[in-house]
Design a protein around this nucleic acid. Sequence first.
DNA 1: CGCTGTTTGTACCGATCGGTACAAACTTGG
DNA 2: CCAAGTTTGTACCGATCGGTACAAACAGCG
Lengths: 177, 177
Amino acid sequence: MPALAEVFREHGYEGASLALISRATGLGKGSLYHLFPGGKAEMAACVLAEIDAWFEANLYRPLRAAERPETAISDMFEAVQTYFRSGRRVCLVGVLALGGGRDLFAEAVRGYFVRWVAALDDALRRTGHDAAASAALAEEVVAQIQGAIVLARALDEPAVFTRALAALQSRIATAAG
Amino acid sequence: MPALAEVFREHGYEGASLALISRATGLGKGSLYHLFPGGKAEMAACVLAEIDAWFEANLYRPLRAAERPETAISDMFEAVQTYFRSGRRVCLVGVLALGGGRDLFAEAVRGYFVRWVAALDDALRRTGHDAAASAALAEEVVAQIQGAIVLARALDEPAVFTRALAALQSRIATAAG
DNA sequence: CGCTGTTTGTACCGATCGGTACAAACTTGG
DNA sequence: CCAAGTTTGTACCGATCGGTACAAACAGCG
């Protein structure tokens, strides 16, 4: 199943052929269509749901629920750094947002980002930012993370990603009220 | 030819089938393969080259050569805003960086971003930023633009893109000196 | 008009696409 | 150990993929 996710990440929705998926997972078509009767669309939807659940549990919920929001935010950066392998690993949700099966997964993609921004906004506000500032900052941070993945990949320089995260963290710290 | 570019933007490299391309351009396969003997790869390469040339002429060169770098920078934001249709239009180079024919176009993709960052860095430095700050800021700005496209698309809210550009401009202005 | 060279539409190629059918190979309860 | 149910490999389906062949349609020039 992680292998399945990796195939979609590396090749996008359209580029992930059943042959590739079959090879990457080691499962034949029979098994695949037994597990996912809905075919490729269901596979992608399932992967998306898993990703969403992971982010919800490991990032969004802590951001919203943490007693010390500052720690939750810096935990988020650490988790993001690890999850995206310093920018070597691509964000599947971002990939789907840009191309491929945009209409198919629009709702899931939207929810993923809406909740990320909202959770970060919540945490930022509780560190002392006023409402307007924290909303804008949350949006900026999420966008910057996505953009840093693009740039790090394009330049083939993971350091770009790491640097971007560090810059964001220091901006948040100095902007804090 | 702009139609060709749009097909690649909307469907990515793998998703842009010859049937789609043919319909979008109004050209039959015969004409397409007469114009681009190298097939789809050559079409994409040609589109990429055109995009690169456009950015070079309209953004990079002005950034490097302008007498008043502040104006060149704000012109850049205006051009970006128009070119990406307030985030409704996707950056083909970013799309290629994330998925699809990454290996095929890696060099072109890399060059596009390297030169963008370098040109912006040049202009920023001439507004008074010291070397380290302007290099970091240039990288941040380009990444933020890419990320804002992703986010605006995902949320289906072009305003996100516009807002991100405005925030960047004001950050540059206040950080100057 | 006829001739020459380029631009185009169309039929076709093998390969591969996503998806289905189904019978062997398994596990499992008795 | 056998019957019932589940998991798997494989052969196959029509559609479409990127790409080629080639002959009609076309242009410019005499």
